[in-house]
Design a binder for these strands. Structure first.
Length: 439
RNA sequence: GUGGGAAUAGCUCAACUGGCAGAGCACCGGACUGUGGCUCCGACGGUUGCGGGUUCGAUUCCCGUUUCCCACCCCA
């Protein structure tokens, strides 16, 4: 038997109702903040991701689904592509998107969206990373994300954008009934700050690294920032004494970060500062954040994001500061209190044709009722009435409508409330109103 | 990619030291030919994840493999 491949899964009803519940809440909330939907391709030129996410990140170095395809390096990327790149991509290398920010920024550049001032875009869709699967981590997973990007003159660089995005996320989670979230906030500064900080960190680690765990010794060389992620208890006293990024922020970055916090306080969004929070993707600058939720095990990050002021330029586009986030939809659905059954819309009425020739009449009635925005399930004239009742009950229908010879003659139909057990005869013309009234 | 645990009916799980592969729920039918839920009766349902090995005999022991789960790495 052929099965869904490792790390992928089918989303079946009724669980899909939960996903729709989430997505329609997302569309509602985002609309109030004037975000509009963008849909970008599921695969892109490989160079897009290595340039933006970062060649040295885990995502690019070992988690991408990449293959060679016939084609050429697209013009839009030509300026950003080095000679070594074009040799490497003589057959165009394509990659299933491991995240969606790069694609959105690519589209922003390609369609000259800077001309429209500030762009506020959101997306919902599958992403792909070749990681070892576990709970809340799949190889095809779904992200809901949004980006605010535009010329600085349109306010894209303002701390007001950061705060607005964070407040929107708090609103969304509350609206979904997820109340026990925690917002962790940090600033990772500008590229200059990070260079200085990395320098200082290496210097501070040099004399103590021998006392640290094997992972940390490796991180000291490859990516000193990641030492802050260490969970080994013995290393904590050492880590506590290390310099913090906050001490290295230049004046504009520090002021920006403080302004974000001030607005959050003013709108009443709770947060905690976490100067150990570092983001894994290269393009992040200044504000970095994460919303966590306790019930998710090791994968406790329900969403993450931050500012990426230099990303557009590094892809050959105009200066276009931006901030965005990605919600792990799989994880979000897992942390919902709602049950799939709870958000599922059950049939308002089950129509039970009774006896030969009744299917046609039942179909007419179904068509009529569905025009009134009722959810109608239709049985079959071959069913015994008992079977129709069982089917109606199993489907969770509110009413059952019997369509038999007697009813057709009288042009009035037996309508029974399945929960209350009350049955009445209702003239055809009043059926829709009668059923709607009970909703 | 590393380490550990698990895999038996559609679902949740049993099966003693290696000896006929079972139960509950679900599904289908009947008791009841125009009235469901409750009850009773019956039927259906299996390559014990897959492949090999040991054995008279393997769901059980061994090896390999796949997938899921837990943790690491990392991230959403």
């Amino acid at each position: 038997m052929i099965k869904a491949v490792r790390g992928t899964r089918d989303l079946l009803p009724p669980e899909t109702a939960l996903w729709n519940f989430v997505e329609s809440a997302v569309r509602d909330v985002f609309r109030a903040y004037n975000f509009q939907e963008i849909r970008t391709p599921v695969f892109e030129d490989t160079a897009l991701f290595s340039r933006s996410v970062g060649e040295e990140t885990d995502i690019v170095s070992k988690e991408m689904y990449t293959w060679d395809d016939r084609g050429q390096v697209p013009k839009i990327l030509a300026d950003a592509v080095t000679p070594e790149d074009s040799a490497r991509y003589s057959y165009q290398s394509l990659t299933l998107r491991p995240e969606n920010t790069a694609g959105v920024v690519r589209a922003y550049i390609e369609h000259d969206l800077w001309q429209k001032g500030l762009s506020k875009l959101y997306y919902i869709g599958p992403q792909f990373r070749r990681e070892r699967p576990q709970k809340g981590r799949y190889r095809q997973f779904y992200q809901i994300g949004a980006e605010v990007i535009g010329p600085a003159s349109a306010g894209s660089e303002s701390p007001a954008r950061d705060a607005e995005v964070l407040e929107m996320l708090a609103t969304l989670l509350d609206r979904l009934g997820i109340t026990d979230w925690n917002l962790e906030l940090n600033s990772v500064g500008c590229p200059n700050d990070r260079t200085a900080f990395n320098e200082a960190l290496r210097k501070a680690l040099e004399p103590v690294k021998d006392k640290m765990c094997a992972d940390c010794q490796r991180r000291t060389v490859t990516n000193p920032l990641r030492v802050f992620d260490c969970k080994v208890p013995e290393d904590q006293p050492i880590i506590e004494k290390l310099p913090r990024i906050s001490q290295f922020l230049d004046e504009p970055c520090r002021a920006h970060f403080e302004a974000v916090q001030a607005i959050l306080k003013s709108v009443g969004v709770q947060f905690v500062l976490n100067d150990r929070l570092v983001r894994g993707l290269d393009y992040y600058t200044r504000t970095a954040f994460e919303f966590t939720h306790g019930a998710l095990g090791a994968q406790n990050a329900i969403l993450g994001g931050g500012r990426y002021d230099g990303l557009s330029e590094s892809l050959g586009g105009p200066a276009a500061p931006g901030i965005g986030f990605a919600i792990g939809e799989d994880r979000l659905v897992m942390s919902l209190k709602e049950s799939a059954e709870g958000v599922l819309r059950k049939p308002d009425v089950y129509i039970a044709p009774l006896g030969p020739g009744m299917n046609a009449e039942a179909a007419r009635l179904a068509r009529e009722l569905r025009r009134h925005d009722l959810v109608v399930e239709l049985g079959d004239e071959s069913f015994r009435l008992k079977k129709s009742f069982e089917a109606a009950t199993k489907a969770g229908a509110k009413y059952i409508l019997i369509v038999g010879e007697n009813e057709v003659k009288a042009d009035a139909f037996a309508l029974k409330d399945l929960a209350k057990g009350e049955q009445v005869s209702v003239p055809r013309a009043e059926l829709a109103q009668r059923i709607q009234g009970a909703r």
